[in-house]
């Protein structure tokens, strides 16, 4: 018997969680309002009481809730992360998503029966790394890095069993080895790895310059969008720079991942869960994307064909890509 496919959806706020559940999410991931999760943005995330209510709402609607504690513990302040683990379990989390091996160890010892997932932030991209987490800590699912081809995902999924694999299928695209990228730290002193923010908004400024929009991070001008040109997040890896006499995107274009066309293949090779990125996005995004992907998954289960072509307006840079899954950019 095959495991049913799971649609894993983002929620940055309690209202976002209700929207995701109502739109058909099988499970929702979210985090506390502190540096323990990799989306530590102002006005986002859940306090302890909100998290308990969110878990109750999800469970009442047959959905699961996964709580992300996926930054790396800071020496001298590890209690913040450990308390987060304890409170997440008490709130009724169906799974904890973690990256720090010390925190994984704590969670396993303190809560032996708790289901644990390995965050994409752990950058586990080899059979050996996944086996280590699976065999030593009973990790039930690994979220694979967004730098792998479909065939690499296939081979890793086979090696990971009985540990499940989860892959990103839609949303903002990070093609760095997550958990190891230092670009944001270099420019701002803050990173998703330690403080939960990449190119944090506290260091981002926009200004108009003769009809163009100029975006800066940490005082560095990284992008200039001409009038009418679609904009993107001013993350350093997506900036346009002058190198060797030519102005271009050095690392990646500001585009979003959209792997909907690959869903049948990903299901065929044994991937258990499809993840939508975007805890920082609004209810309109969550509702549209979750409904679309849930219909696609249901259509696949019913043996019907499907197509999705109406999500491009929600993508960064108004363009999408299958990213590393086909590695056409490398």
């Amino acid at each position: 018997m095959t495991t049913p496919l799971e649609l894993v959806c983002p929620a940055g706020t309690p209202a976002g969680l209700r929207t995701a559940v109502d739109a058909g999410a099988h499970s929702v991931y979210c985090g506390f309002r502190d540096e323990t999760n990799a989306r530590n943005f102002p006005g986002l995330n859940f306090d302890r009481a909100e998290m308990r209510e969110a878990a109750a709402y999800a469970h009442a609607h047959d959905a699961k809730i996964a709580i992300a504690l996926n930054t790396f513990m800071r020496a001298g302040a590890t209690d913040l992360w450990k308390r987060g683990v304890d409170d997440a379990v008490a709130a009724g989390a169906d799974a904890l998503i973690m990256a720090d091996v010390g925190l994984v160890d704590y969670a396993r010892k303190a809560h032996p029966k708790q289901r644990l997932h390995l965050s994409v932030q752990a950058a586990a991209a080899t059979p050996e790394a996944i086996a280590f987490y699976r065999d030593h800590f009973g990790i039930a699912r690994v979220v694979l890095p967004r730098v792998l081809t479909v065939e690499e995902v296939s081979r890793l999924t086979a090696h990971a069993a009985p540990c499940e694999t989860e892959v990103f299928v839609f949303g903002g695209l990070c093609v760095m080895a997550e958990g190891r990228c230092m670009l944001s730290s270099y420019a701002t002193g803050k990173s998703p790895n330690m403080t939960g923010v990449c190119s944090p908004p506290s260091h981002v400024t926009y200004r108009e310059d003769r009809d163009a929009l100029v975006a800066c991070v940490g005082g560095f001008t990284i992008e200039r969008f001409e009038r009418g040109e679609p904009a993107g997040y001013p993350t350093l890896c997506k900036g346009r720079f002058l190198a060797d006499g030519a102005m271009s995107h050095l690392f990646e274009d500001p585009v979003s991942l959209n792997a909907v066309a690959l869903l049948p293949r990903l299901a065929e090779i044994g991937v258990t869960a499809f993840k939508i990125e975007g805890r920082q996005r609004g209810r309109a995004y969550i509702s549209s994307v979750v409904r679309a992907f849930r219909k696609a998954i249901d259509a696949m289960a019913a043996g019907k064909k499907f197509d999705i072509d109406e999500l491009r307006g929600l993508t960064e840079g108004q363009r999408d890509t299958v990213g590393a899954y086909k590695k056409t950019w490398r």
Partner: peptide, 26 residues
């Protein structure tokens, strides 16, 4: 509407304290 999508399509613009805008939006 999704605020980010409006920003990407240039239907919405912001200036000043980006962090405060994000907090208000959320």
């Amino acid at each position: 509407y999704d605020g980010d999508a409006l920003f990407f399509s240039r239907d919405l613009s912001i200036e000043g304290d980006t962090e405060a805008v994000l907090a208000l939006r959320n």
